[in-house]
Simulated scan of single mutants.
Amino acid sequence: MTFILSDVQNGVMTLTLNRPERLNSFNDEMHRQLAEALAQAERDDAIRCLLITGEGRAFCAGQDLNDRNVDPNGAAPDLGASVENFYNPLVRRLAKLPKPVIAAVNGVAAGAGATLALGCDMVIAARSVNFIMSFSRLGLVPDCGGTWFLPRVAGRARAMGLALLGEKLSAEQAHQWGMIWQVVDDEALIDTGRALAAHFASQPTFGLGLVKKALYASESNTLDEQLDLERDYQRIAGRSDDYREGVAAFLAKRPPVFKGK
Rank of each mutant, 00 (worst) to 15 (best):
N221D: 15
L116G: 04
F86E: 06
G161M: 07
R68C: 08
E230V: 14
E172K: 15
D242P: 08
V183Q: 01
E84D: 14
E55Y: 04
S220L: 08
A171Q: 11
N85W: 04
P20N: 12
P204Q: 02
S128L: 15
A76D: 00
Q40G: 02
P72I: 05
S136G: 14
L223C: 09
Y243H: 10
D44T: 04
L34K: 00
D71T: 00
D71P: 00
D185A: 13
Q33L: 05
M160D: 11
V123C: 06
R68A: 10
Q234Y: 09
T53N: 02
L150I: 08
E42W: 00
I4K: 08
D186Y: 05
D28V: 08
P20Q: 12
L116W: 03
V91P: 00
P98Y: 10
R68Q: 04
T222D: 06
L150A: 13
A41V: 04
G145M: 03
G62C: 09
N18S: 15
D232Y: 03
L150E: 06
V12N: 05
A248M: 15
G119E: 07
T205I: 05
L251V: 13
K96P: 03
P100K: 11
E245V: 11
H31N: 07
S218K: 12
E225M: 09
F258T: 02
D45P: 14
L79F: 10
C60P: 13
I190C: 02
A126K: 07
L162R: 01
L15V: 05
N10D: 13
M13I: 02
D28M: 11
M179N: 03
Y233A: 15
N18G: 13
A248Q: 15
V91E: 02
G119W: 00
A104M: 06
V123G: 04
D71Q: 00
E167C: 13
H175N: 08
D242Y: 03
R156W: 10
T16N: 05
L116A: 09
P142E: 05
D224M: 06
A126W: 03
N27W: 11
L118T: 08
T147G: 04
D121Y: 10
L50H: 02
T115Y: 09
Q63M: 13
Y87T: 02
G119R: 01
L162K: 00
